[in-house]
Design a protein around this nucleic acid. Structure first.
Length: 414
RNA sequence: GUGGCUGUAGCUCAGUUGGUCAGAGCAUCGGUUUGUGGUACCGAGGGUCGGGGGUUCAAGUCCCCUCAGCCACCCCA
């Protein structure tokens, strides 16, 4: 392997990629702010314990996907594999429990040592929102609707379906889980290898197995509905009613589950067919047990996270690069004048390209390549009269104006 | 982590049964045009054929290992 290759599963974001990412981030942040979700950021690493405790010792992420480092002082730190645990940690560190409810938006890199694939990298980026302190189904509804709103603003709500399910409250969950484990234990020999493993670590996930044999077993497995107590049923019904009221379509999917114990009630994913197997573009749910699990006061929470790379891939239009105005000096005197002119125009708010070398032809070629909207030709002829020639690079038309009138003349290229 | 496919100039690719097979288009650079870009024409540079090892008189072409990408599983955003 060449040391000049980027580390497996990492990618450089060159300007064109960056523009797509920024489009996603900026759109998401702007929409989130309309719902009152304010941007915040946590460090990209935390004490390993923060993730171990919350994600569960047995979870895939903790057992094999974390980038963990031992520091000289004996501390163990981990590059964050997701952001919810960090946000809750910040909530507790900052003593924010007095200010509920809280609404946060974040974006940033996450790290997971998985096998790379399209839409799945080892360093990837997420945007996300968290709503803390709201026990009502209206909170779930707001979170989901805000997510849909972002997808809509990005232009691909139609390419995505919202799948939703309930995991019930802890009591319902526990009862169902026991019934499920009992059922699958009785048929253990018919389970796939993967599912035998899941049976110990995360039995609910068996429901979502793609294995044929598993699916046959699942078909006759106990149904969650029979174990949902009335409170849980009412809660879910209220969430769905809220979505209905706001006109957001969804598809019930009883196989959609979350493995971790702190999850409860609502679980949802926005899924697209356009990205192959990595079709989940935004996913989240309610995590009423998390804050307490981390040692804080019992505090309900709901949120989602979305993969920026995946969303960026769905973007139809290439976000355009900024179009500068090119200054093309001809001759030594003009070159010096061009520097002060560039300064003045930039201060006036224009994007200005001033090349460092080359004759007129070269500079015009460069201006064209950059997509410059206009070129300002500065030669001896113009300088002698304190004028400049402004050339519209689209139409090819040009006119000579006095330097004092230049800013006005350029206004249409803004 | 498991299985499968792929890897030739900056990019997209062609290279037939191992023997002028190191090529094309685009891009880049130069010229036609020493005050006018985008079009056109002419020309040039650029590749240890992902890397390493092996088989052979001879390997881009066959074998092994390795790295990376892609697809699926797993997991999830």
């Amino acid at each position: 392997m060449s040391s000049l290759q980027p580390v497996r599963g990492t990618h450089d974001l060159l300007p064109a990629d960056m523009r797509r990412h920024r489009k996603v981030r900026d759109t998401a942040r702007a929409v989130a702010e309309r719902y009152g979700y304010l941007e915040m950021a946590t460090p990209i690493f935390e004490f390993t314990e923060v993730f171990k405790r919350t994600l569960g010792e047995a979870s895939d992420v903790v057992t094999k996907e974390m980038y963990t480092f031992s520091m000289k002082e004996g501390e163990e730190i981990t590059l964050r594999p997701e952001n919810t645990a960090s946000v809750v940690r910040a909530f507790l560190s900052g003593g924010l429990a007095q200010q509920l409810p809280l609404k946060f938006f974040y974006d940033g890199p996450m790290f997971r040592h998985e096998r790379p694939q399209k839409g799945r990298q080892r360093q990837f980026h997420q945007i996300g929102v968290e709503l803390l302190g709201v026990p009502h189904p209206a909170g779930d509804v707001e979170i989901i609707v805000a997510g849909a709103h972002i997808l809509d603003e990005l232009g691909f709500l139609d390419d995505v379906v919202l799948e939703i399910n309930t995991l019930g409250d802890p009591a319902s969950r526990q009862a169902y889980r026991e019934a499920l484990v009992g059922y699958f234990r009785d048929h253990r020999d018919r389970l796939s290898e993967d599912s035998k493993d899941r049976l110990e670590r995360n039995p609910l996930r068996i429901l979502d197995s793609k294995d044929r044999g598993d699916r046959e077993l699942v078909a006759d497995a106990p149904a969650f509905d029979d174990y949902l107590n009335s409170e849980s049923q009412d809660f879910f019904a209220a969430v769905l009613a809220g979505l209905d009221r706001l006109g957001l379509n969804y598809k019930l999917n009883s196989r959609l589950v979350r493995g971790l114990d702190y999850y409860s009630h609502t679980a949802f994913e926005f899924i697209t067919e356009r990205l192959g197997a990595q079709g989940t573009v935004m996913g989240g749910g309610r995590y009423d047990g998390l804050v307490k699990l981390m040692g804080g006061p019992p505090t309900p929470g709901v949120g989602w996270a979305a993969g920026i790379e995946r969303l960026a891939m769905l973007l139809e239009a290439e976000p355009p690069a900024p179009r500068p105005i090119a200054i093309v000096p001809i001759g030594q005197a003009a070159e010096e004048k061009a520097q002060t002119l560039a300064r003045d125009l930039r201060r006036a708010g224009y994007g200005v390209d001033l090349g460092f070398s080359g004759n007129m032809k070269k500079r015009l070629q460069r201006a064209n390549k950059l997509g410059a909207a206009a070129a300002i030709l500065l030669g001896d002829d113009e300088l002698a009269e304190a004028k400049a020639t402004v050339r519209d690079l689209e139409s090819g038309q040009q006119e000579t104006v006095s330097l004092t009138a230049l800013t006005d003349c350029l206004a249409r290229f803004r």
